[in-house]
């Protein structure tokens, strides 16, 4: 089990990341709000606990790999990378601006530390599987874990399930999928747009070790990741149940915040809401 101080530290980082995301989005004037806020604990745990990485050496051949497949949640990734030291936090305010390294959707060639270019949905799990395959079967000298975060709406894409079959066939035990299960997508509730449940049963049927957890709970995520990393004969899927817009009361659970940013006033009150949430 994780020490309470470690959980507190990661929860505090998640709050810092949310604060950055709200400021970035308000400054940019466009972008997605709900997904990045809901992902804060997942990203905080990844970049400040689980990933083996060195921001000073983004091409370190021994690093673990993190792929953000649903690239529209980029603000939370950028926030984590800046707070971890990949680039100055001031640069976060350039999100989506002309000339910025922080493109609207992650572009690998623009920013050291990004593993892939993403945004068009459905591609990340395959790319992760390709990297995991090399580590597992071709270059065993470099044992690395490959983590792929996906949106739940993204699972509508057939490419995902092609990748799921592939990873199971080749027993990619070093591949861990993180499904951001927030039940919203652009047109509405996932179960109305294109039902996914029973989602855990689907992943199990595809041959994956499948774990469900509260994706906004640091301790829940740490336990799930520990279990997934211990499974070596097949890939693992962590279905992380998250609250879209988590931490900002007027955004939580509301799919209308999927694809729009807060105004500056809304961002200020949202940051106040985060402080209140922290004291709760």
């Amino acid at each position: 089990m994780s020490a309470p101080e470690e959980v507190d530290r990661l929860e505090s980082i998640a709050r810092d990341l949310r604060r950055s995301v709200l400021a970035m989005l308000a400054q940019a004037g466009s972008g997605h709000s709900a997904g990045p806020l809901g992902m804060a604990e997942i990203i905080a745990v990844m970049y400040f606990h689980t990933l083996r990485h060195d921001p000073a050496r983004p091409d370190d051949p021994d690093r673990d790999i993190f792929i953000l497949s649903h690239g529209h949640t980029a603000p939370i990734l950028y926030a984590a990378m800046a707070h971890a030291g990949y680039f100055p936090t001031d640069e976060l305010m350039t999100l989506r601006r002309l000339g910025s390294r922080l493109q609207g959707h992650p572009e690998r060639t623009a920013l050291p530390g990004l593993e892939t270019t993403s945004g068009p949905l459905g591609c990340g799990l395959s790319q992760g599987a390709g990297i995991a395959y090399v580590s597992e079967h071709l270059d065993r000298s470099r044992k690395r874990f490959v983590y792929v975060a996906m949106g739940d709406g993204e699972l509508n894409e057939g490419n995902i399930w092609e990748a799921a079959m592939f990873a199971a066939k080749y027993r990619l035990g070093n591949l861990i999928g993180l499904v951001d299960r927030n039940y919203i997508q652009i047109d509405g509730r996932t179960e109305e747009v294109m039902p996914l449940d029973d989602l855990a049963a689907k992943w199990r049927a595809f041959g994956w070790h499948t774990i469900e957890t509260d994706g906004n709970s640091v301790s829940g995520l740490l336990a799930a990741l520990g279990e997934a990393r211990a499974v070596s004969d097949r890939p693992s899927a962590i279905i992380a149940h998250t609250v879209p817009g988590r931490g900002v009361d007027f955004m939580e659970y509301d799919y209308r915040w999927h694809g729009k940013p807060p105004t500056k006033d809304q961002a200020l009150s949202a940051i106040d809401a985060l402080e209140a949430d922290a004291r709760r």
């Binding site: 790319q127 071709l138 080749y170």
Partner: peptide, 28 residues
């Protein structure tokens, strides 16, 4: 044989897995 990878009838996966392998230093 160790460098040949069968992906099945899945052309989207074919190219995206290859993209990952290229990221891992291979020439797919």
């Amino acid at each position: 044989p160790e460098r040949f990878i069968e992906v099945g009838v899945a052309e989207q996966n074919l190219v995206t897995v290859a993209s990952g392998m290229a990221r891992a230093g291979r020439i797919p």
